[in-house]
């Protein structure tokens, strides 16, 4: 896999990939899903975000993907204020991140090849230019022989790997993964973890939300713990 880092590892919080200050969010007026979250993810860092179900892990990832806006506090991505970013500016942020959704969000009418090529295509790339990269990526996640198959014919683990391949194909600055090992067995979970680690070694900032605390500890990554909407450990 010929993934090259876009930028060198930087631990300076001023150039952090993600910086949250006093972030609060809630769907109901009376209940805050997230409260006063302060978090810095330096560029090139690797973090696990753990916590029980309903702790706010997925909500935090939604804020980071700019699917929702914080009700309080500020959110900086790639050094820019993304707290109340207008819709027209969203693509520029999102093209710098790769997201692995808990429900995969694969497009069932497209082949595995076209699903993985999607971010490149949306960024204006030509198929002839990126076909080699996509095929290589599918080989890398072990789906090289299923390029023309469509997601409905894939198992949960295969869908997961396909979703990961799509998330990393653009060599993003930031990878956000919501329970990426939730649908796979232990062996595959370790394999996927190694995949994220190798991307991280190339300079990509990685944040994985997972309830699997054992996996998080084994990964050697920084472990953040979210409980009751608040970061209780590991946050800056």
């Amino acid at each position: 896999m010929s993934v090259q880092p876009r930028r060198a590892y930087q631990s300076d919080s001023a150039t952090a990939t993600v910086r949250l200050s006093g972030v609060g969010f809630g769907y109901a007026a009376t209940h805050r899903t997230l409260q006063d979250v302060n978090l810095i993810l330096p560029a090139g860092s690797f973090h696990f975000l753990t916590g029980p179900s309903g702790a706010g892990k997925s909500t935090l990832l939604k804020l980071l993907t700019l699917a929702e806006h914080p009700l309080t506090g500020t959110l900086h991505l790639f050094g820019e204020d993304a707290t109340m970013v207008p819709r027209r500016a969203l693509p520029a942020f999102r093209r710098r991140m790769g997201v692995v959704f808990q429900d995969f969000r694969l497009l069932d009418h497209l082949s595995a090849f076209d699903n993985v090529a999607l971010p490149l295509r949306l960024a204006g790339g030509k198929q002839a230019d990126h076909a080699g990269d996509v095929e290589e990526m599918l080989d890398w996640v072990g789906l090289g022989d299923r390029m023309d198959d469509r997601p409905p014919s894939f198992s949960g683990g295969e869908k997961q790997r396909l979703a990961i391949a799509r998330a990393v194909i653009t060599k993003p600055d930031l990878i956000l993964a919501d329970e990426p090992t939730g649908s796979v067995d232990a062996v595959m979970a370790e394999r996927l973890l190694k995949l994220f680690q190798s991307l991280n070694r190339l300079g990509t900032t990685v944040l994985i939300a997972s309830h699997d605390e054992a996996l998080a500890r084994r990964s050697g990554a920084n472990v953040l713990r979210l409980e009751g909407g608040q970061l209780t450990g590991g946050g800056s």
Binding site: A67, R87, P91, R94, V99, R105, L118
Partner: peptide, 16 residues
């Protein structure tokens, strides 16, 4: 809506 969301989250602009 799922397709639209997925396209948007993968970097598609509203115009696209």
């Amino acid at each position: 809506s799922t397709v639209v969301d997925t396209l948007s989250l993968n970097g598609a602009s509203d115009a696209a």
